[in-house]
């Protein structure tokens, strides 16, 4: 491929996939100075996530990608995102069988038989980036916080390691990193989404079961999705203002 043609193609494909601010951010990224990505104004964004259970095939790509991208400890057992397999016998939503072998990192070896009278499905889990986060509420020093663009983040240089936030999260999304003794959790790939990229889990998802959305951007397809699907958040009774919306969420999921 000659250089000119490559450049031309690069330009046109870039236009295909990126627009405006995202593209400028992307250029800064390619220059190898991502922190200089311009044009990102925190007040112009409000991030959320769509997880479509009807599309999840339990391949574990998101779990692996997340650990790769965010340097999550492989062992012993910590996850920023993980996938659960539900097996609900005969619609008994109060007693589902659930497993998540190594968080889904190695995929899910077949365990159930087709036609056993139960329904089975995968449920990817991650931080819900709640608008009224119980974890942020309980942090005694302000080491975990909600960014102006709606992402719940951790300040590892300020975290005491008191673990109160781990107790306060109803979804089990937080863990103490054994290397730093500070709390860690999904950052919604803040280093990516502020540069016009999507999260690592969305990037790696082969079925678009997870899609990042900017709720403040009227052109973002998330609005169309939320309009045309019956969505639910996890544990709505907790009233945490979760911004991770599930399509096709079964009543047995908790």
């Amino acid at each position: 491929m000659n250089r000119d043609r490559r450049d031309f193609l690069a330009q046109s494909t870039k236009l295909l996939f990126l627009t405006g601010a995202a593209q400028l951010g992307f250029e800064a990224l390619l220059r190898g100075e991502p922190e200089a990505a311009p044009n990102y104004k925190t007040t112009d964004h409000w991030w959320g996530m769509i997880i479509d259970i009807e599309k999840c095939i339990g391949c574990g790509n998101c779990v692996r990608a997340c650990k790769e991208e965010n340097d999550v400890p492989r062992e012993p057992y910590y996850f920023r995102t993980w996938v659960e397999r539900y097996h609900v016998p005969d619609g008994d939503i109060e007693r589902p069988q659930v497993d998540s072998p190594n968080g889904g990192y190695d995929g899910f070896p077949e365990k159930y038989r087709a036609g056993d009278g139960a329904k089975s499905f995968f449920v990817p889990k991650m931080c819900n980036h709640c608008a009224h986060s119980p974890c942020v509420q309980v942090c005694p020093v302000g080491a975990t916080f909600e960014s102006p663009d709606g992402v719940v983040l951790v300040d590892p240089t300020y975290c005491l390691g008191c673990r109160y936030c781990v107790q306060a999260c109803p979804y089990g999304c937080r863990y103490i990193d054994p290397r730093t003794h500070t709390v860690d959790k999904c950052s919604l790939c803040y280093h990516r989404i502020t540069k016009g990229l999507t999260t690592a889990c969305c990037e790696a998802c082969p079925t678009e079961a997870r899609v990042l959305g900017d709720l403040k951007d009227p052109k973002d397809p998330i609005h169309e999705f939320l309009r045309t699907h019956k969505v639910q958040v996890l544990k709505p009774q907790m009233a945490t203002g979760s911004k991770t919306y599930y399509n096709g969420l079964d009543g047995s999921v908790r």
Binding site: M1, R6, L9, A10, T13, K14, F17, L18, F26, L29, L30, P34, E35, A37, T42, A65, E68, E69, N70, F145, S147, L153, V154, D155, T157, Y158, S187, Y190, H191, R192, T194, K195, L197, T198, A200, E203, A204
Partner: peptide
């Protein structure tokens, strides 16, 4: 802390970067 969170290195380049060459 906002900037420090942004400064984390990227591992997945994203499709746009791939098709720059592999069009």
């Amino acid at each position: 802390a906002l900037e420090e969170n942004r400064a984390h290195p990227v591992a997945y380049a994203g499709r746009a970067a791939c098709v720059e060459c592999h069009s």
